[in-house]
């Protein structure tokens, strides 16, 4: 079976975006740099996935300054939490169906 059909959430049917949400499910207000390093991504790559998640209102972006350095942090929204939990349920369901 190939990935990408069925009624899976298109936004979360991507391992990087799913990983970002997994981090935000556990911790609030995680800085850009921390996510980038823990997932081994480039600035541009993470930024594009963040944009997609923000557009879907799954995460909220908080921009501030530490001294003169810009500091961007992320927080998961209620919609994001719901989407994540549902996506997990679907994955588990798919896998259990497949095993039968």
């Amino acid at each position: 079976m190939k990935k990408g059909f069925l009624d899976l959430d298109k936004i979360l049917d991507n391992r990087i975006r799913l990983s970002i949400l997994s981090i935000l499910m556990i911790e609030d207000m995680v800085p850009f740099k921390e996510i980038k390093e823990s997932l081994g991504l480039t600035d541009g790559n993470l930024a594009s996935h963040i944009k997609a998640l923000e557009k879907a209102e799954y995460i909220k972006v908080y921009k501030s300054f530490i001294g003169k350095k810009p500091n961007t942090e992320f927080k998961i929204t209620k919609i994001g939490k719901k989407a994540f939990t549902e996506h997990l349920k679907k994955l588990e369901h798919l896998i259990s169906q497949h095993k039968k």
């Binding site: 990935k3 391992r15 799913l18 981090i23 556990i26 911790e27 997990l88 798919l94 896998i95």
Partner: peptide, 20 residues
């Protein structure tokens, strides 16, 4: 299907790493 299994494994790994 292996893709989905890997998705789950990734989530599990991240969560374990960050759980206190």
């Amino acid at each position: 299907m292996t893709d989905y299994l890997q998705d789950l494994a990734t989530i599990r790994g991240i969560m374990e790493k960050r759980t206190k």
